[in-house]
Simulated scan of single mutants.
Amino acid sequence: MQYLNTPPQGSEASPAQLITGRQLRDAIPVDTSLYEVSERWAWLLRERERAMARSGDSAASRMTQTAHNLEPLTPGLRTRILNPGSGRWDRAGTVLETTAPRQYLVRLDGSGRTTIRNRRHLRPRVRSGARRRDSSDAWRHPAQPRKASTPQTGTTPPARLRVR
């Protein structure tokens, strides 16, 4: 502690005073006024707090510009469920009830287990009939296979590769 309280040669403040704005308490008795935070340090601390408050306000305003409320889900609605580990919408279920604001009890398809999920982890399921119809149309009208094309570079092949 004494090392931290000792100012280096040519300096008026010790490392402890530079970091904390006051002298650290140690075994050597000193005047109690040295333990008080200096005015300069208190002013710097207030300025930092004001700057952080201003940056926090601007961050909050940026967040509210893009934020939006999700529509509430009704019981019986089929939903997709976000897997927080993988970030994929790989489960499906049916909303059973609303347990709290933006919180839903959902019965999973397949296993029949019930789970509680927040509204941001649930999305209403798109009607699967439209998707099946699109995929069946693709089956009836398969894409034509592409012909292998040779690059059109405008150069002639070397003599050893020319067909005779």
Rank of each mutant, 00 (worst) to 15 (best):
V126W: 05
L105H: 05
L18H: 01
L108V: 05
P7Y: 13
R107P: 13
A159Q: 06
S33D: 12
R102Y: 14
H141G: 08
D109E: 15
W43G: 03
R62W: 10
R162D: 00
R133F: 03
T6W: 04
T32M: 02
A42G: 02
R80Q: 04
H141L: 04
A51W: 08
D31C: 09
G154A: 11
P151T: 09
G85Q: 04
V126Q: 06
E39W: 01
I28F: 01
V30R: 14
W41G: 01
E47Q: 10
R40D: 07
M1Y: 06
E97C: 12
L105R: 11
Y104A: 14
T64A: 09
A60Q: 10
T64E: 09
R46H: 04
L4F: 10
D90C: 10
R123D: 07
D31Q: 11
D137R: 13
R46N: 10
A143L: 13
A53Q: 09
E36A: 09
N69I: 12
G21S: 02
R54Q: 11
G76T: 02
L77V: 14
P124F: 01
D31K: 07
Q65S: 09
Y104M: 12
G112M: 12
S149I: 15
A51Y: 12
T155D: 03
S149R: 15
V163A: 09
S135N: 14
A59T: 15
T98E: 10
P75H: 02
Q23C: 11
W43R: 01
Q2E: 08
A42D: 08
E39I: 00
G112C: 12
R50K: 13
G85L: 02
S38T: 11
R123S: 07
T155N: 05
S111E: 05
R132Y: 14
S86Y: 00
R162N: 03
D134Q: 14
E49D: 12
A27W: 06
L70D: 02
D137S: 15
P8C: 10
V106C: 10
R107M: 10
G154T: 13
R120H: 09
T153L: 11
M1R: 05
R123I: 08
D109P: 00
H68L: 05
E12I: 02
A159L: 05
R91D: 04
G85D: 07
R127F: 01
S38K: 03
A16F: 09
P142Y: 13
S11L: 13
T79Q: 00
P151K: 11
S55V: 07
P8I: 09
A148M: 06
L34N: 04
R25D: 00
T98F: 02
S149H: 14
